[in-house]
Design a protein around this nucleic acid. Structure first.
Length: 506
RNA sequence: GCAGCCGUAGCUCAGCUGGUUAGAGCGCUAGAUUGUGGAUCUAGAGGUCCCCCGUUCGAUCCGGGGCGGCUGUACCA
């Protein structure tokens, strides 16, 4: 036997940035998805599902390049040599779907979609290489009423998820205001140019780096605490001042009213036509928010919300949690926004050649879940574990099977102990499982036509007061012998008692 | 991608200024305590000391390279 063959063992490990989800996490996520879905449905969106991967050219300009074939997206070649890529969001597949089925769809077309997406990026807290998003989009809707709806629906979703009003904020802005500002202060470069994007991204970091950091990024560049240097946009001092003044006009005291913020921005955009247009759109959105009763405690206009992505063309928005999140060790964790969106009028155009205005909102379910988990606000474990029927006597498996079947037929979660260990281990198993009741039928019970029901929840309460082992065992805490024929009724009664003690359920 | 710190049991870590069989606590598996989850006691399993190369009589420890993790930063279409 070859030595290397003999000693080879694959290392059991989950790939970085991916994770396994235990029962509690799966249930928590499903609950979140159900609540979001309910809101989306109420707003009149219909479900759509598209596949997990697409032809790479349909997803965007991101064909694998030679140096780093998997940069950003995970991609691979089909047997006909065509490049496929795992979807990195749900918007690009939507654009493909709309373009492919354009004539058959009602317009506007409103759909929601959830599912995993994949990005080949460096993972971090609340940042994974596979994560779940939940999107709603309205396609072929030119007016900003569609954008305003997204903002309001985003607020509704967060509240439906149990985040209290005041603990989150939907922050909106308009790319056109930014365009107006840059036009006024004479920054050369079309939207999408390097300088334009560098300025945008610098503004985007105001939240994190403050005025000083943004000034450096707009000017010569910034060195971070690890000594790494980030190249700046190279603006002149007066340009920098203009940009930073604008950014600070939308925060703090000045942001006390959406209308006041817009008034302040009139000077920012000056005579710029595109800037004026942006402000008019925001004013229209404000009117809609106000009419629908969405005040500043839910939606605000915010100058440093610009979104780093190139494809947004109008209103942009994101949702942020306002409370501080700390990790297990107590260090503050910086989560990005838990939802974001905006208007992308050019995405379908890539396929159709005609402009199809669209806007959408995407909730980062995985990130939100990670944040709520660290906050201890993720309600896990309200699913009752099964009743466990112990199998003490291999010759009587049929009898045990009959009990489990009766319990299941009565709608009670129940399982046979299927391991190979003795009674003590079986109870330990039931305990670890969180089982409310263990059903015990040994020889003694069988001859008497009884079963013993052990109330594991009550027993665990009692054990806190018993130190002595003899007393603990002799007392046979919280168990009762009942006639075998009354198994289902007695178990049902015991479960009902648990429910009333626990007080909540439903 | 760039920079800093870090890699010893499932987890949290100790240890060795380079020397035979690498340890603890918790966890896990079992035994004792009448056929009973907690507690207590006993035993057992579990390690290529991240990997490779070099220095050395000898490397978990020293040097180089790699890989992985964390943090910051960048990127996030």
């Amino acid at each position: 036997m070859n030595k290397s063959q003999k000693s080879f063992r694959p290392k059991a490990r989950v790939p970085k940035g991916l994770r396994d989800m235990s029962a509690g996490m799966v249930r928590a996520e499903e609950r979140m998805l159900a609540r979001i879905r309910e809101v989306y449905e109420r707003y009149g969106f219909d479900p759509l599902e598209t596949s997990a991967f697409e032809y790479a050219d349909a997803l965007g300009k991101f064909l694998p390049d030679e140096d780093r074939p998997n940069e950003g997206v995970f991609s691979f070649q089909d047997d006909d040599e065509q490049w496929l890529a795992l979807r990195y969001d749900l918007t690009a597949p939507l654009a493909r779907y709309v373009a492919e089925n354009y004539d058959a769809l009602p317009k506007p077309f409103r759909r929601y979609q959830t599912g995993p997406v994949w990005r080949n990026e460096k993972p971090g807290p609340g940042r994974f290489r596979q994560f779940t998003q939940f999107d709603a989009d309205t396609v072929a809707a030119p007016g900003v009423a569609a954008d305003a709806e997204m903002c309001m629906m985003g607020a509704d979703c967060l509240e439906a998820l149990g985040i209290p009003r005041g603990s989150y904020r939907i922050r909106a802005n308009n790319r056109k205001v930014l365009d107006g500002l840059l036009e006024r202060i004479g920054i050369a470069g079309e939207p999408g140019s390097t300088t334009y994007m560098t300025v945008l991204r610098a503004i985007d970091k105001y939240d994190r780096l403050g005025r000083k950091g943004v000034e450096l990024l707009l000017g010569p560049g910034r060195k971070d605490e690890s000594g790494d240097f980030t190249k700046g946009a190279g603006l002149s001092p007066s340009q920098i001042t203009a940009v930073v003044d604008y950014v600070e006009s939308g925060v703090g005291e000045g942001a006390s009213d959406r209308k006041l913020v817009l008034d302040g921005w009139r000077n920012v955009v000056g005579e710029s036509a595109i800037g004026r247009e942006g402000l008019d759109e925001l004013a229209e959105m404000d009117a809609l928010f106000t009419a629908a009763g969405y005040g500043l405690d839910r939606i605000e206009f915010n100058s440093w919300i610009v979104r780093g992505l190139g494809y947004y063309t109008g209103p942009v928005f994101e949702s942020d949690l306002l409370f501080e999140v700390k990790d297990e060790v107590g260090n503050p964790v910086r989560f990005g926004s838990v939802g974001s969106g905006g208007r992308y009028d050019g995405l379908v155009e890539r396929f159709k050649g005609v402009k199809v205005p669209a806007t959408g909102f995407s909730i980062g379910v995985s990130r939100l879940q990670a944040a709520l988990e660290l906050l201890g606000k993720l309600d896990v474990e309200d699913v009752l574990a099964p009743v466990v029927v112990l199998t003490l006597d291999a010759a009587n498996m049929a009898g045990y099977q009959a009990m489990v079947s009766e319990l299941r037929a009565a709608g009670i979660r129940a399982e046979l102990y299927l391991g190979g260990s003795g009674m003590k281990a079986q109870l330990k198993y039931a305990d670890k499982r969180g089982a409310p009741i263990a059903v015990i039928e040994g020889e003694d019970e069988r001859t008497k036509g009884e079963v013993t029901l052990k109330d594991l929840i009550l027993g665990s309460e009692m054990s806190k007061e018993i130190e002595d082992n003899a007393a603990w065992r002799e007392g046979q805490p919280a168990q009762v012998a009942v006639p075998r024929a009354r198994l289902v009724e007695e178990v049902t009664a015991m479960l009902a008692r648990h429910r009333s003690v626990r007080g909540h359920h439903g």
